[in-house]
Each structure stands twice: as structure tokens, then as C-alpha cells.
């Protein structure tokens, strides 16, 4: 495996921020489109969103060194508008509080929630925009790095966005099953969401690999590391089979059977999507190869 300046903290951040943002979008979509029968899913999504993104951001801070030991240095993080980290700090600072307030409003937690409930639609609009920004930004963060040709493609934010949607929906569905197991039947409606998001994710991932093989020597090195090199067992087993193919097929069956699939399999498919989402970030970060310079 290649030496990478970024490790598991950054990988965890990319995953958690994506899943949290996706959970928020799932919650908003459920609340706006089907408020009567998808209440537990909207509630679960909103409750998970803020904490997930906040934990992810904590990982980001833990990865800092001088900025962790001398936290006042973090004030400088918004100094350079051409840096995606500066943009990320602004987006996260807006999204995290809104996600918490939204969870309070939707679940009517404390007086804050009761007041915020009056402005629910505004929280949903602003929050959804910031959620899309959060999920997309995790991809843009690495897509603008021209020191790693494999990452340096506009496909990267699209891939991260698709993965954020499928992992976020998975989080919301698991949460809904925890909150109210009797809603497991209605969860079958959302299996269609998984089918769509996983299909897009698989398609974009395939495109990324194929384009990288012909883009440059270094991008091809990274792609080969995934399909036949050091990372290939993780890529094929964890990302492709466990994270994409199996949950894709299970979601089709789930949608088709409509509520007749065993509960363990419904939640199981969602857990696999989460394993796949985390593994996807890990193999992408670890396969980053710098340009050959001499």
C-alpha cells in the first residue's frame, strides 16, 4: 500500500459527512413527499444527520496536528477562499447547527424544537442545500488535488454524492427500524431509492475506473491498484460485491416482495451499503498515486 498523508481519520470523515448529509436529504424528502407514512424514516434521518456530520468533523479536527494541540490556530482555517477546506469549514459550520435544529423541530424535542417547528420548511430548504454542499464538497475536496491524477476528475464529486445518498438512506432506514420496527413494511418503498442510488454509484465508479485507465500513467496505476493490484481484494469484495451488487439485488427483491422480506435482510442490506461506502472512501484515498516526476 502506498504512503498517504491522509489516513483513517480523513476516510472516516468523508464517509460520515456523506452519510449524515444523505440522511438529512432522505429525511427532508420523506417529510415533504410522504409525511403520512414515512414519518419514522424522516425522524430517524433527521436524528442521525447532525451527530454523524459532527463526529465526522471531529475526525477532521483529530487529523490536524498543530491545529489540534493549539486549537486557536483553527481560526485561520477560513483564510483562503481558493482552498476547499476553507469552503468546507464554512459549509459544515452552517450545516451542523441546522441539522441539529431540524432534528429537534421534526421530533419536537425541547422548547427549541417547538419554536423551530414553525419554520420547518425554511430549515428543510436551507438544510437541503447545505446537505448537498456537504456531500458534494467531500468529493470536490479530493477532486481538486492535481497532485493525485486519479482523484483529479469531476466524476469524483458525482461518485461521492451518489454514495452519500445511498449511505444516508441506509442510515435513515436502519434508524427507522430501530425507532419503530413495525414500519419495516413501509421501508420496502425506499428500497427503490437504494436501487437507483446504487445503480448510479456503480455506473460512475465503472466510468471512473475506465477513464482512469486511459487518462494518464499515474491514474492508470491507481485504477490498476484497485482492479488487479494490492487493493483489489478490498475493492472487489468490500466495495463491489458487498457494497454494491448484493444490496442492489436485495433491494430489488425487497421492493418486489413488498414487506415480505425478513427484517434481518432489510436491515442487513442497509448495513452492507454502509460497509461499502466506508470501503469506497478507503480504497480511493489509499490508491492515490502522485505523478511520476523524473
Amino acid at each position: 500500500m502506498l504512503e498517504s498523508a491522509w489516513g483513517w481519520y480523513i476516510i472516516a470523515y468523508l464517509f460520515l459527512a456523506g452519510a449524515g448529509a444523505g440522511a438529512f436529504i432522505s429525511a427532508v424528502a420523506c417529510d415533504l413527499l410522504a409525511p403520512d407514512w414515512s414519518k419514522s424514516l424522516a425522524r430517524a434521518g433527521s436524528l442521525a444527520s447532525g451527530p454523524l456530520v459532527a463526529i465526522g468533523t471531529a475526525c477532521l479536527v483529530l487529523d490536524l496536528e498543530a491545529g489540534l494541540w493549539e486549537p486557536w490556530r483553527q481560526i485561520y482555517l477560513v483564510a483562503n477562499s481558493s482552498s476547499m477546506i476553507t469552503w468546507g469549514v464554512v459549509i459544515l459550520s452552517g450545516f451542523i447547527p441546522i441539522a441539529f435544529v431540524y432534528a429537534a423541530a421534526l421530533n419536537e424535542i425541547t422548547i427549541v424544537g417547538k419554536i423551530a417547528k414553525k419554520y420547518l420548511i425554511y430549515l428543510e430548504i436551507v438544510g437541503a442545500v447545505l446537505a448537498v454542499a456537504t456531500a458534494g464538497y467531500t468529493g470536490v475536496l479530493i477532486a481538486v488535488v492535481n497532485g493525485v491524477p486519479f482523484w483529479n476528475t469531476p466524476l469524483m464529486p458525482v461518485l461521492f454524492m451518489a454514495s452519500a445518498m445511498s449511505t444516508g438512506l441506509a442510515v435513515a432506514m436502519i434508524g427507522a427500524a430501530i425507532i419503530d420496527i413495525s414500519t419495516i413494511r413501509t421501508l420496502s418503498n425506499f428500497a427503490l431509492g437504494h436501487v437507483i442510488f446504487l445503480a448510479v454509484e456503480g455506473l460512475v465508479l465503472g466510468l471512473l475506473i475506465f477513464m482512469s485507465l486511459t487518462k494518464s500513467v499515474e491514474a492508470a496505476d491507481s485504477a490498476k491498484m484497485l482492479i488487479s493490484g494490492a487493493l483489489s481484494p478490498y475493492f472487489w469484495i468490500l466495495v463491489v460485491i458487498v457494497g454494491l451488487l448484493v444490496p442492489f439485488v436485495m433491494s430489488i427483491v425487497e421492493y418486489h416482495e413488498y414487506g415480505e422480506m425478513p427484517k434481518i435482510l432489510v436491515v442487513g442490506a442497509d448495513l452492507l451499503v454502509l460497509i461499502g461506502g466506508m470501503s469506497l472512501r478507503a480504497v480511493i484515498i489509499f490508491s492515490g498515486t502522485p505523478p511520476h516526476i523524473v
Binding site: S4, A5, W6, D63, L64, E65, A66, G67, L68, R73, Q74, Y76, L77, S83, M84, I85, I142, V145, G147, V148, G288
Partner: peptide
């Protein structure tokens, strides 16, 4: 410098 390592990448 906060040590975010973005420049290293």
C-alpha cells in the same frame, strides 16, 4: 499552519 496535510497531497 494547522497540519491538515492538504498541501502534502
Amino acid at each position: 499552519c494547522v497540519g491538515c496535510k492538504y498541501c502534502v497531497q
